[in-house]
Design a protein around this nucleic acid. Structure first.
Lengths: 229, 229, 229, 229
DNA sequence: AATGAATGAGGCTTCATTCAT
DNA sequence: GATGAATGAAGCCTCATTCAT
């Protein structure tokens, strides 16, 4: 995380994007001090551009020069807001982890049967992943490009996410509404494998809308978990 | 690129390893002319070492120098057998694609109900993937590091594999033994996402043996495909 | 390539040397921002050194390391100003083509009989070539070492130069003051062959001063063009 | 010169080609011991191929591998006949120097007025140069790529050639049939510059036949030498 | 007479980062 | 806040030549 002064109006981070609304950046940001003609603060622009380029070409194949050129800032400016190129990548991870965890927590806290909550969580993560395909592309491909310390942090956060999802599966297994012959951990890994793979095959201009894929995926999961009659 | 002589017994490729036997290199190779103290031909050693390093550190973070040092050959020797570092990566892809396709073709050609064939195919790809985890790690992470031409070739071969698997799903759907409310394409992508993800979470020293994971995965797939009663 | 800032007073190019004054670099450059102890901007120093080395040892036998060592800059600095070693060579061509074309245009635009203008042009190109013998050495020897695109550009500019000189010959032939039994194109190639060859045999410490050679060459050309009586 | 055994039938050198007949290699060479399917001895094929490649791409840009591939022999074979790549280039020089000298000596020894002998020599060198344009391309471009010792040898032979031609000019000046206000040395350099430049502009598919160019060039030389009336 | 695998030195280029301004 | 010239280490690759066979 870059040690930059917090921009006025941003809760705790100059690059705090509205990730929870699927990457749609808040339109009213243009009056903050670091904004420029493009109506976007410099650090946000850098992060947006870096995400796109890292997904397109890979982290190591993207040079800092390309990032600053695409964001229309200078190198000095980038190093003013971010410690290093690596820091930029860490921000991508922080953003996606924060977003997914927040959404899962909200869904887990809602009422309804466990089946309903799993269905909503399973579907939501698909829709959100599709809305941020670049993040998904980067997520597993670039983990090894973070420093060891940052990798650990990402894995820890990821595990918390995994555990929350797993707790829903276990809840259903204990209630007898989900089959319990498969370990809950394995079920979670099984499903999230499918989800991450979306970045490999999903095409926005394809036949299926994001919610359709979400519905199909959630149904496949729930069907796989139906107790054998 | 110099055409390297075909190793005795290998149909057409100097790096033709016994991939189908899960990466265990043929022990009887030590008497071939280009073998050295390590009992392995130079190109094979290079490919084995490169696979390990690419999986450990990523393609871009692995230098040719590291590869040749680990394989105990000189850079010149490496470039005698491979056009480029990229070519080494392409060989990794060629090997894994060849292996997986061969195995699926054999399973698809066996008798038994379509359910049996899908179960065997689903289980086998899990076991084989676990036996070659490095290949799986590399597969999706490094596709973008191949030249565009080689990427196309890999994708084409991958599509053929996907289509063969899909044809089994469709066969089951037409027979009414598999639910047909989910497109077969999507089912295949769903399942192979889970499979590729194995390289992210599976640990050889963990609780589950490869065949156990294979059984669980195959059952999850088949259960997800049960027609609704 | 980074666009290097235009040196004060130079119309559009950081390496805009006073080529028209025979390679004597402007003495007043020492106060520009990128100048250093040697009183010369980095790109100019690089170009001067590269010209000398390319002439001495040939383009392919001159390493970038030698160039930067001789110019007393680092490799990174060189690549900050020039795209490639090739680009350095391209600048040599650009400079000499610009210089010769400018001089010929000025001479062609002066008054006097066509004989006088041809004499001045023929003599001037000899004197200028001798003053920049390194450029002449490089010119034909290294053309094939440029990229195809840059070669085309050089040939195009060279053709324009040739055509302007040819137009003077034709003017004389039409006035009847030059023999017209030889095609003007061939006359131009004949003469410029002689001129380029200067770099092979002329020695600054030899018997003949540059202007003497210029006078002899111009006379040989004009005598060759005398109409037969 | 390679220290190879002289092939049967070749006067003193395995690569002794019929240079004096303009590069048309003797057709009856197929029965010599080192000949192969192509009807050409290995060293001759290597030399022919090397000449073409050196002219096309330059000496340093032509690899030994390319030469042996194009000649359809192996590297070992090449090093059997030639000491080094450099040696191959030296042979190109030896061949062209030998050929031109022989021809000039024959012409100088014939009868006729000095004007006639100069005309024949001047015309002949043009025709011969055009018939061996690759040699001409290489001649000045690659001199610096020979070892210092071989360069000296080439320059010495070249000077002898120059001196023989110059002696004809002086003979004419002493007889008063050539103008003597220009030093004979300079006249020779002037003319041979034009001749070497042929490789830059002459195109076999152009308008002018080799003999036409030879006639024009010889006439330009003689006209330039006309005593002023 | 010929092979071609292997060497090892050297070449060109890229790039994250720093720092004086 | 911001600039961009400069650094210096590292990366990939080429190639003439040798040598065991």
């Amino acid at each position: 995380m870059p040690d930059v002064p917090t921009a006025p109006g941003a809760p705790d981070d100059p690059v705090e994007t509205d990730a929870a609304t699927n990457g749609q950046l808040a339109p009213g940001a243009s009056d903050e001090s670091t904004a420029d003609a493009s109506g976007e603060s410099v650090p946000r622009r850098l992060l947006a551009v870096a995400t796109r380029l890292f997904a397109e070409k890979g982290f190591d194949r993207t040079s800092v020069q390309e990032i600053v050129d695409a964001a229309d800032v200078t190198k000095g400016a980038m190093y003013h807001y971010f410690d290093s190129k690596d820091d930029l990548l860490a921000e991508v991870y922080a953003r996606v982890l924060r977003m997914q965890m927040t959404r899962l927590e909200e869904i887990a806290a809602t009422g309804g049967t466990v089946t309903e909550r799993v269905r909503r969580a399973a579907s939501d993560v698909v829709v959100t992943t599709i809305a941020n395909l670049d993040d998904a592309t980067i997520f597993f491909r670039s983990l090894h490009q973070l420093t060891a310390a940052k990798q650990r942090e990402v894995r820890t956060k990821r595990r918390h996410y995994h555990e929350l999802f797993r707790s829903l599966i276990i809840e259903g297994q204990e209630q007898g509404v989900f089959a319990d012959h498969v370990p809950a951990d394995l079920v979670v890994d099984f499903y999230f494998g499918s989800v991450h793979h979306l970045s490999t095959w999903y095409r926005p201009d394809g036949k299926l809308a994001p919610t359709e894929v979400g519905d199909h995926y959630a149904r496949l999961l729930l069907d796989a978990l139906r107790p054998s009659s």
